[in-house]
């Protein structure tokens, strides 16, 4: 596969390592009253769509960017590639 890195252009997927569902960005609040339940769902419950999937890839053999890759897991078509830090900010994460 070829992943179109937002900073570096097209790169072979061999340069990357795969983590999993990009919903990992939405890490729960540790101080919520039901934090254990929320973390449980966050860590263990995943959608497994036969189609578009947003997933985290790490450019380990490159610039070490974490990317959010939107990929159709049936056809392997890659529809969008974003820097994970941009996605995280857009989802309200800061520091």
């Amino acid at each position: 596969m070829i992943i179109n890195h937002p900073l570096l252009g097209p790169r072979d997927s061999q340069e990357f390592t795969y983590l999993g569902d990009a919903s990992l960005i939405d890490r729960p609040d540790w101080q919520a009253p039901d934090a254990v339940d929320q973390f449980h769902d966050y860590l263990y419950l995943r959608d497994n769509p036969a189609g578009e999937h947003r997933e985290l890839w790490f450019h380990e053999q490159g610039d070490r960017s974490w990317l959010v890759v939107t990929r159709n897991v049936v056809t392997h078509e890659i529809l969008n590639v974003e820097l994970a830090s941009d996605v995280a900010r857009s989802r309200g994460r800061s520091k």
Binding site: E60, W66, A84, S85, K95
Partner: peptide, 19 residues
Amino acid sequence: AVGVYRHMEYCRQCLWPDM
């Protein structure tokens, strides 16, 4: 060594991007 570094970058970029 490799996995910890990857994990730390994940935390920095995906969880706390403005640190």
